[in-house]
Structures are given as C-alpha cells and as structure tokens.
C-alpha cells in the first residue's frame, strides 16, 4: 500500500521521525486498537490515536454525553449532550482523520461480550471508571493474550501500567481482588481535575503507538504514578509476572471471567 500525497503530508511529522518513518506509519494504518470507555481517559486517547492514523479504532461505552462530562471528556462538545458517547466520539475521530475506520460498541463490557469485543484488536486501552470493569478487562486480556494499557485517575492523581500477558505482571498481580463496593472512592464521588484524563489518557495512547510501531520500551513491569499537586511522576518497579497471581500465573485459579458487583452510586456511570 503506497501513501497518497495527502497521507504523506498528514503524517509527515511521524514519517520524519527515524524511529517511526514510513514503515511505522504503515503499521499504524494497519493497526486495530480498542478503547473501552469514551470518557476522561478514552477521549484524549481516541483523539491522538485517530490523529496518528491508527487504521481501526473500536470504542465501547454504554453512556450518553452529559453536561458534567464536558469538563474533561474533550472528544465531546456541548452540541453532543444527549448523544451516545460512542457516536459522538466516532464523529469527532472521523472528522479529524478520514483514514480511520471507527467501530462503535454501545454496551457495557461484561463476561458475556468482552472476549468477542477484544478478539480482533491488536491493543486494548482501558478507560473505564470502575473496578469491576478494570478487573474484567485485565482478566479477559490475560486470557486472550491481548496487550493492555491499564489506567486510573482520581482527584489530582493518576497511574498507568502496560500489561503484556505472558511477559509482564498484570493488574491482578498488583491487586488481588477489587475493593468492596464503595470502599475506595471513584471520580464521581471524589472529583477529578479535567487535565488528568489528558495526561494519563495521552500516555496510554503513547503506549499504544509504541506497541504498534515497536519503538522504545513499554511500561511493562512498572506502575507509573503522577501526582499533579506535587508535580511528580514516580515509576514503581513491579515484581515479575505471575508469582501467585490468580489469573496470570502458570497455574491460574481464575479461568473464567467474573462480573463483580458494581458500587451502587456508580450504576448509571458504569
């Protein structure tokens, strides 16, 4: 596949990078990334991945755009209030870059649909806002051997890690089980500074681009934390994969997906 003149122009700042070049850009155009959650994290990630020319982007979300989303979910506009988030996000991505094919999934992820949803994608990006979804996505990606960017944000803090099943540690290596309902606050209860989604979601997009193009070192085996108030990034080295992990050890005890119960106050914003 040869680039059109328009593509050479559009991606010129990528193509000129010796690490990316025409070869890397072609990899991006042929890549498929699934973004679960079209919100604080998913919005900036989707914008950058669409702009980068990731050829196929899947976006999953079961919510509609609400006025209170617009403080941080920069892929949606005031005119989008009431629209399905996946449709609003897809419109913006297509408007940014007609090279991108967008697949929308107007649905919550569950043990029933997630394996089918992730199976055709090269890289998965978790932009969900609750522990049941984060554990489900981790377990499904481990089982299906799909690379995953996991992230979480709250108040003035954010963190992320990249999970390479079979190689590096997974989310469950760090946290064995979800905390009980309402034991740990979510964004809705605690608040989050809008730009936090931009910082962490963009880092997730960066990991996706690096994975696809094979450039540099991924955030596998590390948890990167960001504290905006102290203006500090801190990279925590994680122990190797699987040591006693219920899902990613060589003798896993979790072999089927689990739908954990959702915190009551988050039911709507699942």
């Amino acid at each position: 596949m040869a680039f059109t003149n328009e593509q050479l122009e559009r991606y010129s700042r990528h193509i000129i990078l010796k690490e990316i070049g025409a070869k890397g850009q072609k990899k991006l155009l042929n890549a498929k990334v699934l973004i679960i959650g079209a919100g604080g994290l998913g919005a900036p990630a989707a914008l950058y991945l669409a702009a980068a020319g990731v050829g196929t982007i899947g976006i999953a979300d079961a919510d509609v755009v609400d006025l209170s989303n617009l403080q941080r979910q920069v892929i949606h506009t005031t005119n989008d209030i009431g629209k399905r988030k996946v449709d609003s996000a897809a419109e913006t991505m297509r408007a940014i870059n007609p090279d991108v094919t967008v697949n929308t999934y107007y649905d919550f992820v569950s043990s029933v649909n997630i394996m089918d949803m992730i199976k055709d994608y090269d890289f998965i990006l978790d932009g969900t806002d609750n522990f049941p979804a984060k554990f489900l996505i981790n377990d499904a990606c481990v089982m299906a051997k799909k690379p995953l960017s996991h992230a979480g944000i709250i108040r003035f803090k954010g963190q992320l890690t990249t999970i390479l099943p079979g190689e590096g540690p997974c989310y469950r290596c760090i946290f064995k089980n979800p905390p009980p309902k309402d034991a740990v606050p979510t964004c809705k209860q605690a608040g989050v500074i809008g730009a936090m989604g931009g910082v962490i979601g963009s880092l997730q997009a960066m990991e996706a681009v690096k994975y696809i193009t094979g450039v540099g070192e991924l955030l596998s085996g590390y948890l990167l934390t960001y504290d905006a108030l102290k203006m500090e990034f801190h990279k925590i080295k994680l122990p190797p994969r699987g040591k006693g992990c219920a899902v990613c050890s060589d003798t896993p005890t979790i072999t089927e997906l689990i739908d954990y119960e959702q915190a009551a106050c988050d039911m709507k914003a699942h």
């Binding site: 604080g40 994290l41 979910q73 984060k134």
Partner: peptide, 11 residues
C-alpha cells in the same frame, strides 16, 4: 518501600 493504591476512576 512502595505503596500501590487502587485508582478506580477514568471516565
């Protein structure tokens, strides 16, 4: 020593 915290937000 490192402390690793649950961070559940994202949307």
């Amino acid at each position: 020593v490192e402390f690793l915290y649950f961070m559940g937000g994202g949307r």
